[in-house]
């Protein structure tokens, strides 16, 4: 098997599941002939035809709304938004309907839709192409928010998201789309949702991250190992519902925790993780929990964009800080 990128793993998962489940419909802007602006749906039109792989008119609220209607009829729409910043016109449909239709009808109607979008900054794109507002969706009752950070997890988590009976916001870190490749067997095996993945076992400090920041976080863990600091690295993967137990178990062991996210600091998902550690794990802590995050600013345009993203150096400094406590 040739190694594949995160992007190709998305395509592989879509093709696999469309092959076994005829109810899956892929829809969005430019997803058919063009294969999506990043090519995540490349080849699906040829394999599955224009009934199941549909270019829509340019309207995001429409994409979300019709997906909801289709889903209530037993179809399983996988809708692509071109970038996370262009989900916003569809928020009414997603928050007011997709997230609530099960609850509103006491389970009579359900909404098994996957809303996919590339997200995050660092690709030197124009304004609105750099958003990481996962906290907004994590704050919405009734939604799942899933973020892969490797080709294998992209494949396994997308399969699980499509098979899940509830709406999933599936956010793909565009900075990692073509970053690294690995062998991902096309065996249709899903990974579990709602659990964190421990990517590296350590004893001194727990690093918690997700999405594209896994790149800097893993690099920081490598660098720290050379200084004799053993970092445990957790990829949250499912942002909501959050697997706090895995994080707490790790913090119980290490006594220290640094949370890393590229989203703005205020009310980011890191704030919730930190609060839960304070509520349930305060007695484990040898040092205050630290966050390394994006600023509470709009992501700057390309020329200054690199100054927005948290750096490996900032993660190392935060770890050095927490290590100074006894």
């Amino acid at each position: 098997m040739a190694d594949i990128s995160l992007l190709e793993a998305i395509t592989q998962a879509l093709a696999y599941e469309m092959g076994v489940d005829p109810n899956i419909i892929v829809l969005g802007e430019d997803v058919a002939k063009n294969g999506g602006v990043f090519r995540a749906t490349l080849g699906l039109l040829d394999k599955f035809g224009s009934e199941r792989v549909r270019d829509t008119p340019l309207a995001e609220s429409m994409i979300a709304g019709i997906s909801i209607g289709m889903a209530t009829q037993g179809l399983k729409p996988v809708a692509e938004f071109q970038f996370m910043g262009f989900i916003y016109p569809a928020l009414d449909q997603i928050i007011n309907h997709a997230a609530r239709i099960r609850n509103r009808t006491r389970g009579r109607l359900t909404c098994p839709v996957v809303f996919r979008a590339p997200y995050g900054c660092g690709i030197r794109a124009p304004e609105h192409h750099s958003e990481s507002t996962e906290a907004m969706f994590a704050h919405t009752p009734g939604l799942r928010v899933v973020i892969p950070s490797s080709p294998a997890r992209a494949y396994g988590l997308l399969l699980a998201s499509i098979r899940d009976p509830d709406p999933v916001i599936f956010l793909e870190p565009s900075r990692l789309y073509r970053w690294s490749k690995q062998d991902v067997p096309d065996d249709g095996k899903a990974l579990p949702l709602d659990v964190c993945f421990t990517l590296r076992v350590g004893t001194d400090v727990t690093l918690v991250a997700w999405g594209a920041m896994m790149k800097e976080t893993l690099a920081a863990a490598d660098a720290l190992a050379k200084e004799g600091i053993s970092a445990e690295v957790i990829d949250v993967a499912t942002i909501k519902p959050l697997d706090i137990d895995t994080i707490l178990a790790s913090v119980e062991k290490t006594g220290r925790c640094v949370i890393i996210h590229e989203a703005p600091r205020t009310c980011g998902v890191g704030a919730d993780i930190s609060a839960q550690i304070a509520e349930r794990g305060l007695m484990f802590l040898k040092a205050p929990v630290q966050r390394v995050t994006g600023f509470d600013t709009i992501v700057p345009y390309a020329r200054l964009e690199k100054f927005y993203l948290p750096s490996e150096q900032q993660i190392i400094e935060a770890v050095n800080n927490v290590m100074e406590f006894a």
């Binding site: 600091r265 600023f295 509470d296 600013t297 709009i298 700057p300 200054l304 690199k306 100054f307 927005y308 993203l309 750096s311 490996e312 150096q313 900032q314």
Partner: peptide
């Protein structure tokens, strides 16, 4: 990056702004 967000930058962001200014080119 900070100075056009609000008419007057709320004081609580001063620390973040300082962090930014100290940041080396990543």
């Amino acid at each position: 990056i900070f100075d056009y967000l609000y008419a007057r930058l709320p004081d609580i962001y001063a620390e973040q702004r300082e962090t930014l200014l100290k940041k080396e080119v990543p």
